[in-house]
Write a protein that binds this DNA or RNA. Structure first.
Length: 440
RNA sequence: CGGGGCAUAGCUCAGCCUGGUAGAGCACCUGCUUUGGGAGCAGGGGGCCGCAAGUUCGAAUCUUGCUGCCCCGACCA
């Protein structure tokens, strides 16, 4: 993409409504624009990152055996009356009346709808296990939206729902999601720690929140330092094998949010392993048994021919929130530092002097090479002064910057800068391109 | 939903106390100079001063009501 033809409304000054760093940077980098409290328009740069995050989430869901579908944002109130949640949900649910005076709602979640879809088609245990997910916009009318995209009213969420004949099967489904989440966050360049979450009236140990450590996190968290070094399974992990050992390698170490904190257990750890930090919740997995299948009559016949309500779990990832979480975890004073996997462009090419034949030629050559290599470069061919270009490139945080100007070219060199480390090398254009295109 | 605050140009903000023709910086347009870490000079465009009532000869400014937004708390992916 040529910057001169792109839409990147950079802000030099910070809009006053933005308090936390990810919100400030997303506004300044022209990624989002607020349209209403907690409701954002996604500008091209932000939308690009959002799609990359979404795609990684999708790939790991698919890898684990979950199956994607797409449910609507608008749901009928009657569905929610079946589960009793229409009255229970409260003012967080945005209720809408259509032209026929029918009561509708903008979905805050989809347990009822997926249960309805399931019950209308599945009758036998032979169709299980099943895990269906979608990535869709949700709306929760939060009293106080804040932190920009991190806690908006409208947000993009991946939610998966598992169906099994019994609790033992549900645990297997749960473990698959557990591992899929470990891999997802790892690919996003994040260190996510699963922490025991409150299971409410269901009980049991099948609920975990996945928490990103970041200084600006919303809640206090405590964990065993060993968790930070526990290896995340690779691409070759077999989801049909028993995943218990992997899950246990995480769950056997202490980790808890403030609400679940057990000071005594934490204190029993050697002092150098006690990590007390702040965290951002980016995922939540939860087994809830037959809560909805009972209420809504989602039953399947077992091998014995007896119909039983299915055991369900739900598994959420805050896709839009993840962008904020990534920035909170990866930025510096100059701007965002995108992990390579989600960077909106692979590299920036800074043309320091558009109109200079040698510089233009070198930039076009770099642009063509990186495009051909699939690195999706952003060529800054605008008329701005060099200083402004450097500032913009740092702000939007692309992994690499190739700085091409007349002074360097006179000596046959360009500057290659790695955004994450700030490391600069003065090298030939060829070796700069080789470096950017080489496999990580 | 409790408490606090803000609303003036695209952005950051002054002006309001003490009523009298709407301001600055940045951004934008034109020209000249400049060109390796957010340039300089000159000229220019851009405002229902959040909305509505009221007080007044006269309201951005004073009064009342409303709306929107932000922050702290309680609540949440």
């Amino acid at each position: 993409m040529r910057l001169s033809r792109y839409f990147l409304p950079i802000l030099k000054e910070t809009p006053k409504e933005a308090e936390i760093v990810s919100h400030r940077l997303m506004l300044r980098a022209g990624m989002v624009r607020q349209q209403s409290a907690g409701i954002y328009a996604w500008l091209p740069l932000g939308f690009k990152v959002l799609q990359k995050v979404e795609q990684i989430v999708r790939e790991e869901q698919d890898r684990s055996g979950a199956v994607e579908l797409l449910m609507p944002t608008i749901q009928a109130a009657d569905l929610w009356r079946e589960s009793g949640r229409y009255d229970a949900y409260g003012k967080e649910m945005l209720r809408i009346t259509d032209r026929h005076e029918r009561e509708m709602l903008f979905g805050p979640t989809n347990e009822e709808m997926i249960t309805d879809i399931f019950r209308s088609s599945v009758r036998s245990y032979r169709d299980l296990p099943l895990n269906l997910y979608h990535i869709q916009w949700k709306f929760r009318d939060e009293v106080r939206p804040r932190f920009g995209i991190m806690r908006g009213r409208e947000f993009l969420m991946k939610d998966a729902y598992s169906f099994d004949l019994d609790q033992a099967g549900a645990r297997i489904a749960y473990n698959k999601m557990f591992v899929a989440y470990l891999r997802t966050f790892e690919r996003l360049g994040l260190k996510a720690i699963p922490m025991r979450a409150d299971t409410g009236p269901i009980g049991g140990d099948l609920s975990h929140e996945f928490i990103i450590l970041a200084a600006t996190g919303e809640s206090a968290v405590f964990c065993d330092k060993a968790l930070l070094d526990t290896p995340v399974p690779g691409e070759d992990v077999d989801f049909d094998a028993d995943l218990t050992p992997i899950v246990e390698s995480f769950t056997d170490k202490y980790a808890a949010t403030e609400e679940m904190h057990d000071a005594a257990a934490f204190g029993a750890l050697p002092e150098e392993r006690q990590v007390s930090a702040r965290g951002i919740e980016v995922g939540h997995i939860f087994y809830f048994g037959t809560k909805y299948s009972d209420a809504m009559g989602a039953k399947v016949a077992g091998p014995d021919g007896v119909e039983k309500p299915v055991h369900m779990g739900s598994y959420g990832v805050g896709v839009s929130r993840l962008l904020g979480a990534i920035i909170e975890a990866s930025h510096d004073d100059a701007g965002i530092i995108w992990p390579d996997s989600v960077a909106p462009f692979g590299a920036a090419i800074l043309n320091l002097k558009p109109g200079d034949l040698a510089v233009d030629t070198a930039c076009e050559s770099a642009y063509a090479t990186l495009n051909a290599a699939g690195k999706d470069p952003l060529l800054d061919d605008t008329e701005q002064r060099p200083g402004a270009k450097f500032a913009t490139a740092d702000l939007i945080g692309l992994p690499w910057q190739i700085v091409i100007g007349p002074k360097g070219l006179a000596d046959g060199v360009v500057e290659l800068k790695r955004r994450a480390t700030g490391e600069k090398q003065t090298v030939s254009l060829e070796s700069a391109l080789a470096r950017v295109t080489e496999k990580a």
